[in-house]
Amino acid sequence: MRLLVHVAAATLGTIGWSCVLHPPPGAAQTTTKVISSNPLSNTPEAIAAGERLYAKFCLQCHGANGDGMSPRWGRVGADLRKYWRGYTEFVNIVAAGRPEKRMPPWGAVLSADQINEIGAYLETLAPDGKWGD
């Protein structure tokens, strides 16, 4: 968790304390404030809910272990065992997608809380307990 805080703090230095989620084209034009670190980290209920959501929406590309190895398509997704760009950007990418990387936008499907729950689950997949390192 200490490492997460470190990463979040480093991220804040460059992008600020909060950001605005940009919904995908065609989605309801709402803006959602999200904080830049995961408020649901280490919350058992959130982790359990995040696991179910991850299995439904993420696993097909990012794999059962979150390492980016799809059970069907090979290496098609990013390794999610670490927030490579910090937590805020993780949330942004989940919501807005990355078309150039074949990442769908889920902002019109998943709430901010649900994205946080997925994040809470991903934090449990970090190798050797070094999530966020």
Binding site: A55, K56, C58, L59, A64, V109
Partner: peptide, 12 residues
């Protein structure tokens, strides 16, 4: 491994 419920959301 996998979803416990049928996934009908497009692209998931």
């Amino acid at each position: 491994v996998g979803s416990e419920e049928r996934t009908t959301e497009p692209f998931a």
